[in-house]
Design a protein around this nucleic acid. Structure first.
Length: 561
RNA sequence: GCGCCCGUAGCUCAGGUGGAAAGAGCAACGGACUUCUAAUCCGUGAGCCGGGGGUUCGAGUCCUCCCGGGCGCACCA
């Protein structure tokens, strides 16, 4: 896909490379190794549109000061047939390039042509990538950490897909192991209690109202038929029932949040088909395990972890870790080149051992990338809010959607990088004002739609970009918008490769701000024909790019507000 | 004690592979609506980038040691 920024950078590099060659030919410079120089955008506009540091990387080779090198290179630069208008040397040895603003207007026809595909590319070349996120315990409702993970993971998946990866979004269902045992015991206790039979919820069990609710419903449907069956059978059935209910609930809550998984991967199935056992056997054969105190251990410390880890407990049951190894082995066997896991900060200690396990399995550990999210703190009226307004219990994902809405929640979760604590201001998220960033962005979109509607009502025909005279876009606020629009493809690529969708919220805010500034200084409708058409095309481009950005974030772009 | 993350304006945070005089939003103060949505815009003030060393032409960014905060260090997940 077209990216006018990288095109222009390429043309500048050409100019530089040719100048170096020429300077060497005339023996003014003696350079044998071409340095790895960069083209960058100077912070200060007065330093040009682009700059290069090449002269500052050459003093040793050329045996002269950087400014002198810059002068020589500049003198050999041939800028014919480029947009470069002026080249200057400055500062400690920068070479600054000043461009004719006309290069920027090319972005409008590109956006018009590519529309919803503007910004996308094929960097990923169809490589298979697995993004596992949320993976909340199916023993109860989802909390704020799960919500942040959902927003982050889904936007990241969209982003990776946009740059050409074949993305699979996956939810690992922990429907096995200790916590499920406790879940079953808790359900059973409630079930018996509802029939007036004395029973106790285990120490580490689940005491929530939802457990009682599940059993009330089950009794309504199936009555007392599990009172007189063997304990094991009873627990299995109660667990199965409640898990199914919880999973359905999670699917619904996530769907309300705009998150749809491709695969819900059951941990239980790994055990059932013997994958866990096979994986353990494999590690055993490789000599990466040993027995101690009746348990089987994985030599994690041999692979960079702090200590060894138990695979099979002395009671004969495999640990969660053992299943997780089998799960990751399975991911790679399914052909994923990269597996991304999104975990809460409280799990960060597991990264070395998990990567160690991947390595022990014979895969490059770099193929597993773990994103650690820091905690979310909710604020209401300036104070930490732990409880839901409505239920009085811990705030769940569905509470959050109900209180602030899906768009605001998704935007807020993606405003900060994953590794900073997130202060979520619930009051701000519902505010319909300039303070609320998501409204600010959506308002920009709606405002554009409003102008376009009026243009249509006034019978104004917008020409195709190729036929319009876009050179009349010379106002500072117009040029600033064009520059921002041109940045979009690299913005997406960089965010995707860094696995950091939060750059998109910032981008959307910056573009919106530039639009609002333009709106207040330039009128569109009623201007001289050429200018009006050009501005209509400009704001249409802004609308398209805002829409594309919001879509990646899973947020709606309203036509009116 | 060991490991990971964080420490930038009063508050919340940005600062691609090191680059030229550190940015934004909010809060504070002062302005702009007979005109396409004032849910907006314009302006002002505000900083030993936690601290000390080091690497180099050049460090908020890299290395090291401290200080402060969060989270881990189970035969739980």
């Amino acid at each position: 896909m077209a990216d006018i920024i990288s095109d222009i950078e390429k043309s500048i590099k050409d100019v530089i490379d040719r100048a170096v060659k020429k300077a060497c030919e005339t023996q003014e410079l003696n350079i044998t190794v071409m340095p790895d120089y960069i083209i960058e955008v100077p912070r200060e506009k007065t330093n040009g549109d682009f700059a290069t540091n090449i002269a500052m990387l050459l003093p040793k080779q050329a045996k002269m000061p950087p400014r002198k090198i810059a002068e020589i290179l500049t003198s050999h630069m041939d800028t014919a047939d480029t947009y470069i208008e002026k080249v200057e040397t400055a500062g400690p040895g920068f070479i600054n390039f000043y461009l004719n603003n006309k290069w920027l207007i090319n972005v409008i026809p590109v956006i018009e042509k590519e529309a919803e595909n503007y910004g996308r590319c094929n960097k990923g070349q169809g490589k298979k990538i697995n993004v596992e996120f949320v993976s909340a315990n199916p023993t109860g409702p989802m909390h704020m950490g799960n919500a942040r993970g959902a927003a982050l993971g889904d936007s990241l998946a969209n982003l990776l897909e946009a740059v050409g990866y074949d993305v699979t979004k996956e939810f690992y269902v922990n429907d096995s192991g200790n916590q499920i045992e406790n879940f079953g015991k808790s359900l059973e206790a409630r079930y018996l209690q509802l029939f007036g039979i004395e029973a106790e919820i285990p120490e580490e069990g689940y005491h929530g109202e939802d457990i009682i609710e599940h059993m009330r419903e089950l009794i309504k449907i199936e009555g007392d038929k599990y009172l007189n069956v063997p304990e094991e059978e009873r627990r299995a059935r109660l667990t199965e029932y409640a898990l199914e209910k919880n999973l359905a609930r999670m699917k619904k809550d996530l769907a309300d949040f705009g998150v749809e998984f491709d695969i819900w991967f059951s941990e239980q199935t790994l055990h059932k088909v013997g994958k866990v056992e096979q994986t353990i056997d494999y590690l055993k054969e490789k000599g990466y395990t040993y027995e101690s105190e009746d348990a089987l251990w994985f030599k994690a410390s041999q692979f960079g972890a702090e200590k060894d880890e138990v695979l099979i407990r002395s009671n004969g049951l495999p640990t969660y870790f053992a299943a997780d190894i089998a799960y990751h082995k399975n991911k790679f066997e399914r052909g994923f080149e990269i597996a991304i896991d999104i975990w809460g900060a409280d799990h960060h200690g597991h990264i070395p051992r998990m990567k160690g396990a991947v390595e022990a399995l014979g895969y490059n550990p770099d193929r597993l990338h773990v994103i650690i999210m820091q905690l979310v703190r909710l604020y209401r009226q300036g104070e930490i809010a732990r409880m839901s307004k409505r239920t009085g219990r811990a705030v769940t994902l569905s509470d959050l959607i109900e209180e602030v809405g899906r768009d605001a929640a998704r935007f807020f979760f993606n405003m900060r990088s994953a590794d900073t604590h997130l202060d979520f201001d619930l009051d701000l998220a519902v505010t319909q004002s300039t303070d609320n960033p998501v409204f600010y962005v959506q308002y920009a979109h709606a405002r554009i739609c409003s102008i376009l509607r009026q243009a249509e009502e006034n019978g104004i025909t917008i020409l195709p970009a190729e036929e319009a005279n876009l050179e009349v876009l010379t106002e500072e606020s117009e040029l600033a918008i064009l520059r921002k629009l041109a940045d979009f493809p690299s913005e997406i690529l960089n965010s995707a490769l860094a696995y950091e969708p939060y750059h998109l919220t910032r981008y959307s805010l910056e573009l919106s701000s530039l639009f609002h500034t333009f709106y207040n200084s330039c009128r569109v409708i009623g201007q001289e024909e050429n200018i009006m058409i050009a501005r209509l095309l400009l704001i249409k481009s802004v609308k398209q790019v805002l829409k594309n950005t919001l879509t990646l974030l899973g947020i709606t772009a309203p036509e009116r507000m």
